[in-house]
Nucleic acid binder design. Structure first.
Lengths: 349, 349
DNA sequence: CTGAAAGCGCTTACAG
DNA sequence: CTGAAAGCGCTTACAG
């Protein structure tokens, strides 16, 4: 059987309280006892049960991460970042693939509560706010890549999507493009809205129009991007540049262009968003707005830890609506990565 | 505060034992009491603490998954499969990105033990067998995509890598290729060895030689594939076909060929392995040996569950070396997916 | 500096 | 059919 704190105590001829203290480096223990006990723990290969200590000490050192799909390269990278930073700080992470389905989200949050995770990071759409609101006061929560919902007490870490959209526009404008179109994800997602908004904003400033039918909403699959791009490319006044709200959609656009015999970047420029591994692997490689995934994930974890500390220091208020600090919102800078999918439009060459 | 079993019991005017029984559907409880208690649990939004129940009932309903890198598309897909099947069966999964580093692996296994996960799925290299051996008797373990180590009591689910290698060879041979080369991952990894072995075997059967310097070991990064491919393509008798042990390496090969002005598939055929999303996204799309990831993940979870049951039914022997059933080894079929990176060699056209 | 005791939220024989 | 009590492996005041 695995050794317990009792085994150690008996072996060392002390009480379990004493052993507990050396484990947690609390209280004063004489140097000799301490080292003797440590030696015994080593010898018996003793590892304190997180389960038991969670039942009293309250910490499970486990975080929950909700994302739509782990196999989507962007979220896979987010997951890695969260997991890495979490591990550095002593936390494990439970992944939850929600598929953006509300029932699943509810199930997961409920499971995470039952398992008493210390915090939750949400990178998925949450249709029903109320659930989140209920949850928020009990488990520290941070939204990653999505805006927090009104009435929710959650911190937020996002990329500066709007600026990213602006940068994409700026790049294309600089190359001389005037007729542009957009492949967007569902505009229900805040980040998509912001990217589009930034893009359009910059165009507006230059007095360039972005007709409504030049903005297409897609799911986040390659196939959707391809279909919508096909239609866009069949327009009488074919756009010379496409801004795609993620790499997957951009790949769809690349495929549609190829099918139509339209060469990239000579006849069509494509800018994508996310800069996942996919962007570097296509032909031509995609010019893309990079999200600082690493930092996104790390920041989310750090915000959570800060929240833990704050709640501990003001335990009385921990259950009131006013607990914790004010929810923070952190927007991280994106970066334009220029590859080979963009160039000046032909007419201008 | 969250409601506990005591709150429910008090509210219902029964003992906590009774409440516990209705939670677990154990023992006989009168229909009225049962429904009354259930109603109260609903009303108080009661959710039993997994932590507390784990301390007695022994199940945490949590699995650990060790993989080298979650952001690697192949492992991301494995993770999704494991997570999905796990969720269906009532288990959460903690992801652990090991980066193939031994210290990390040890840390993780130790953490997972402390958290009393019910089982561990290992998809990463494990340098030091002894650790695994020590672990195996205490936590049910299954290897996924890697062979179990000698002396280890772990089940194994793999793709039939050898057959996959054979199929790749067969495909290339059928197209008429004779001069071939291989981009492999480290041959310390059993799956890489098997792929190469199957490939070479089939060539041997046709009396075709695969010179030693035509087999290059790479890490699993695009850049390595590119560098090694560059060398291969500079050989005086340049190979007409390349078998790459994963998609990443194949992408490197594609890039090297492009740099060298070698057109694919006209002048060089490329077959990859894994068939991740990357294979469908390159230009040209890659002919690839698909691993049945979905099934791989699901099977791993199922083997674990079976092991749980077996250990429960023979608790006496659970701590002896002979516990559980014999370790199983399941090899799943791969599938050749033909895309556009392979064709007959030029000389033969 | 050290220990006895209560308690965390459950489950599980064992009585009744 | 129902409940009292012990126990799971820890932590935390509180005494000494």
């Amino acid at each position: 059987m695995k050794a317990t704190i009792y085994d150690i105590a008996k072996e060392a001829g002390v009480s379990i309280a004493t052993v507990s203290k050396v484990i947690n480096a609390k209280g004063k223990i004489s140097q000799e006892k301490r080292s003797e006990i440590i030696a015994i723990m080593d010898r018996l290969n003793y590892q304190p049960s997180v389960i038991a200590s969670a039942l009293t000490g309250k910490h499970t050192y486990t975080l929950g991460l909700l994302i739509p799909d782990i196999a989507n390269p962007f979220f896979a990278e987010v997951a890695r970042a969260v997991e890495q930073r979490g591990h550095e700080l002593g936390y494990s992470v439970i992944i939850c693939g929600t598929d953006n389905r509300n029932e699943r989200i509810e199930q997961y949050i409920s499971v995470l509560r039952q398992k008493q995770v210390d915090g939750i990071i949400i990178g998925t759409g949450v249709g029903d706010t109320s659930m989140l609101r209920d949850n928020a006061w009990s488990i520290p929560t941070v939204m990653i890549g999505r805006e927090a919902y009104a009435g929710t007490i959650a911190h937020t870490v996002v990329s500066d999507d709007r600026q990213g959209g602006r940068d994409a526009a700026e790049h294309l404008l600089g190359l001389g493009h005037r007729r542009m179109a957009v492949l967007s994800e569902s505009l229900e997602i805040s980040s998509s809205r912001e990217r589009l908004r930034g893009f359009r904003e910059r165009l507006d400033e230059q007095g360039i129009e972005l007709p409504l039918d030049h903005v297409r909403q897609c799911k986040y699959r390659v196939e959707d991007g391809r279909r919508q791009a096909r239609e866009l490319l069949a327009l009488p006044e074919r756009p010379t540049a496409l801004f795609c709200c993620n790499d997957l959609l951009a790949i769809g656009a690349l495929q549609a262009a190829k099918e139509a015999g339209i060469s990239i970047p000579q006849e069509l420029s494509v800018v994508s968003f996310d800069n996942t591994i996919l962007a570097s692997v296509t032909d031509p490689p995609l010019t893309s707005i990079a999200q600082p995934v690493e930092k996104l994930g790390a920041t989310a974890v750090e915000l959570l830890l800060r929240e833990f500390r704050e709640r501990q220091s003001q335990p009385q208020r921990a259950q009131t609506a006013a607990q914790g600090a004010q929810p923070q919102r952190i927007a991280l800078q994106t970066e334009l990565i220029i590859r080979s999918s963009t160039a000046a439009p032909r007419s201008r060459r």
